[in-house]
Design a protein around this nucleic acid. Sequence first.
RNA 1: GGAGAGUUGGCAGAGUGGUAAUGCAGCGGAUUGCUAAUCCGUCAUGUCUUAACAGGCAUGCAUGAGUUCAAAUCUCAUACUCUCCGCCA
Length: 422
Amino acid sequence: MHSIKFIRENEQIVKQCLDLKGSDIDLTEILDIDFKRRTLIQEVESLKADRNKVNNDISQNKKEKKDCHNLINDMKNISVKIKALDNDLNQFNNDLNNKLLYIPNIIHQSVPVGSSAKDNKVIKIWGEKPKFEFNPSSHLELCESLNIVDFKRAAKISGSAFPLYINRGAKLERSLINYMLDAHIENHNYTEIFPPFLVTSNSPLTTGNLPKFKDDMYYIENDDLYLIPTAEVPITNFYANEVLDENALPTKFVAYSACFRREAGSYGKDTKGLHRLHQFNKVELVKFCKPKDSYSELDKLLNDAEKILQELNLHYRVIELCGGDLSFSAAKCYDIEVWSPFEQKYLEVSSCSNFESFQARRGNIKYRDKSSNKLEFVHTLNGSGLATPRLMIALLETNQNSKGEVIIPKPISSYFGKDIID
RNA sequence: GGAGAGUUGGCAGAGUGGUAAUGCAGCGGAUUGCUAAUCCGUCAUGUCUUAACAGGCAUGCAUGAGUUCAAAUCUCAUACUCUCCGCCA
């Protein structure tokens, strides 16, 4: 969210970003509401100044036991007017706020120009595509032959697009999560959080999932709670409505959570296997920092996430998203995509984004800046480090041998207890 | 689920119908030959004037309604926190 003041003073920049993100929001309408609102404020506040003056007079007179009937009658009139104007003002304020919640973040200058995914830039390729002396199997075939994911029974229990890991599949999933958590805690100095998976509506409002993307989340009507689509939602709200000590910044959190997504609007896409699921596991990284540090912190965050794939020796590339492909809340974003040898394509396993003050405003997360001694909004960042399903695809397909077995990479094997699934 | 207590600024904490005390921390300044002490100012949000510095006004006492000339204060509803009881992995 942006302050209306910022929009008023930077109309052209906001408009450019709206156009780039293909938004149909009418800025002139918003600025018009703002103008009317400010006119009303002036009107009602001068009446309130009057009221305060007369109030004092009444108070004085009462002390001196003088008659103040006339004054009280005057006040009656003023109060009626104030009440009516305050009502109007409230409507303008609500209207304005509701509209502001739908305005996406401003795109950072360094972001490549472009309108869709085809304009994204590949900025890094790590490792090489593995070569096989046999025809590699798909992750689906491996899951079935090794009996590690049971898609059929999962569908019987929960419907389509829910995974059910079994046997060594369940243990491998657990090993991946534990390995990634420990790597970020021990090697990259993140503080571990194990968050609640159900949240009240103000939490997704902070992160930008609400109000615009309500249909993407599972909602529990009885209790007015949402299932989290990512651990970003609870962690970003860890400091909601708080003022942080500047010396404590940056703070870095890592959390495992299950993630729940309705995937409304993507029916028929990636329906097979582990590509796109209603429930999946993810290890998430979240940072709070001072505005001047947020882009260097984004680079570090990206490195921390990449490190996982490097240690697992999986071929991947890093994409810098263009303006048109950026998500609602992000000012800049890198995607990490891991290679699937069977499908011969790259699969997204992480998005690392800087939200600047966009989420901090919505969640009211501030710090006191020592140099200006003013309260300022922090910058928030997050990235997956990493999501497991597509990581599992790459891991199984890359490490298979001609006998249909899967070799477990070194960093995982100590968690897994073996170095092969046969 | 039941009963009770509570929610005031960055933090602590007074205020029970008539301008939101005070303390701590932070920041700025004054002063005493230096790290301390003392004193003064500042320290939330919006809006207006101003190129800016700054100043004026209004708002802000969990949230939302209501009573009243006037609400932190009275009434009602809701949320959250704490204590006790009940149920429960």
